[in-house]
Design a protein around this nucleic acid. Structure first.
Lengths: 335, 335
DNA sequence: CTGTTAGCGCGTTCAA
DNA sequence: TTGAACGCGCTAACAG
């Protein structure tokens, strides 16, 4: 490995002069600056970021703690994060926790050891010890789609209640009065309960009575969507539309409908939530509440950068809007 | 930040003794070891990995250069990589190149600056300057699904020719004699040409003449699959089966068939390639050549670790097998 | 078994 | 504008 010392010796000057020249410090003679640059090029010098970080106490690395990178939701958010991080000179260390709370804490510790300048967290629930682990890391942390603001942790999220209501209102405006709902786990304080609440609120605002018989709990998997929808089909009267708390369950619902020979959207309208690539790929293409996936990532990263550079935040919580993307599962044209 | 020096002073002993105790070196008195451990716990000591890496010249970080993390193919491979890396004490720096060759080289340079112990590369083609950039990084590199072996770079891959033939043979055994093919870009030396070659070989082995009219080139996107399949439907005689070089195009094909009222698999069998989550989610669920996605990642990482720890490799190239997963697009039962 | 010394590569004083 | 000296936190070599 070739170091600053090497190019200093090569030029018969001092190491610190090399450092200053390479880092574009103000008071270096143009000629020395040029000689240093030339020598660096010629010797194929590569700065050692580790040493620099140790000396400056800034690593230009951010940690990303995520529950499942093979899930399109996280993968798309991750892309937004990586892009903004890189554009600002930061590298991203990827930590996939597989929803294991112990692993989450281990990763937080690891990242602290690695002297990351900041952390983006979007994994798991927030029990007391996880919050404690986050606090014990001394660097800035931003959360995505979690209830971090309650603990004073800067957060980027959507308003799940409002966005779920958006979907239901759309179905109501389409003329549906009997709308089934496939929820996620109701102990999920983010995508579970709030989306159910939004469903209820929209019905209530429209004067439609709430019928628990046409609410089925799933677990965000396609298979659970199949089962939940199958149960919904037994309800009397049978719903004319189904809203699912995420796309995978909505897709499962469409599978169940296909099995029963029920045509979408002629006999049943289906709406999902998230708008990962899955939504546009299924047949018929899925109408869905589109989360701004990349924006969740990029916005969070921008917040984190402001914090890492000591610029401070206007708001501790940023709420982004979703958009209803109408596709053929609901009367749109599809691809 | 609390350092080894702090806990050394606290205990009135020497810094290096602390280091040895913390690192479980052989010759330390059990009692001092315990006192050090206790003090470390009490003071909430966290090792500074940066400093350690600088001193030992090993960072326990690997770089991952990938073209698109929001693509399920890469996301699933990435999960395999991260899992094995973490299990062996390595962290992963994620670099998303967006298929930009300049960005690839920039990232390689960055990773070298960050003193990564190794790199996994699965992005883009391999023009001379990319190969040069890879060589100029002095750490071990492993490639996935690329023609790296030709340049002496250890590689994990599948045999695209053989695996494509596997799918076509399956269709032939099902009784199909007129099998359309939707290829990827033919200038893709990995998933393009070889898969076409496998298609041709399987036909030839079965004594079925090759008809260029029922081969259409796409670009691996769903939309291109729609267009290609639409063209295939005009061929006379019309194919009874379609094989697409990846799942997205196969899904596009199924969309086109649905638009034309052609029932899958009754009137047309469809087979794809890759087996990302997309394949099991579409309706009907897609029969596909299943790449061992996580294994590609984990195997590559295991190779890399062998290299980084100086254990050497048996083979410079590891070829993994695929498996045909039969789902309802082809006569299977689907979900 | 433990202390001393030196050094990893770089940034940053403080003088000159 | 440059050089000399020191420190970042940790590991390693050599004594003792």
């Amino acid at each position: 490995m070739i170091t600053m010392k090497d190019i200093a010796m090569e030029l018969g000057i001092n190491e610190s002069t090399v450092s200053r020249a390479l880092n574009n410090h103000p008071h270096v003679h143009p000629s020395t600056r040029e000689r240093v640059a030339e020598a660096a090029r010629r010797l194929n010098y590569r700065p050692n970021t580790l040493a620099r970080s140790l000396a400056t106490n800034r690593s230009y690395v951010v940690g990303l703690v995520i529950s499942n990178i093979a899930n399109l939701f996280f993968a798309e958010v991750t892309q937004g994060i990586e892009q903004v991080a890189d554009a600002n000179g930061y590298s991203v260390i990827l930590c996939d926790t597989a929803r294991d709370a112990a692993k989450e804490r281990r990763y937080l510790d690891l990242l602290a050891s690695r002297q990351v300048d900041g952390i983006i967290f979007m994994s798991g629930r927030l029990p007391a010890d996880t919050v404690a682990a986050i606090r014990s890391v001394k660097c800035p942390v931003v959360m995505i789609s979690r209830d971090g603001a309650r603990y004073g942790i800067p957060t980027v999220r959507i308003n799940n209640r409002v966005e779920a209501a958006r979907a239901v209102n759309y179905l109501i405006n389409l003329g549906h009065a009997r709308i089934g709902f496939i929820s996620g786990q109701l102990d999920d304080a983010e995508s579970g309960l709030p989306r159910l609440a939004g469903y209820k609120a929209a019905l209530s605002d429209a004067g439609i009575p709430f019928d628990p018989c046409i609410v089925q709990e799933g677990d965000f998997t396609m298979e659970s969507g199949v089962r939940a929808c199958t149960r919904l089909l037994d309800a009397v009267p049978r719903p004319t539309a189904v809203f699912a708390a995420n796309d995978e369950m909505a897709i499962g619902a469409m599978k169940a409908l296909a099995q029963h020979g029920i045509s979408v959207p002629k006999d049943m309208a289906v709406v999902g939530f998230d708008n990962t690539a899955l939504a546009r790929v299924v047949t018929p293409a899925l109408t869905t509440v589109a989360q701004p996936l990349r924006s969740l990532g990029s916005t969070a990263t921008e917040m984190l950068i402001r914090m890492m550079t000591g610029q401070g935040l206007k708001d501790i919580e940023v709420v982004l809007d979703c958009q209803l993307v109408v596709r053929s599962s609901c009367g749109g044209t599809g691809i």
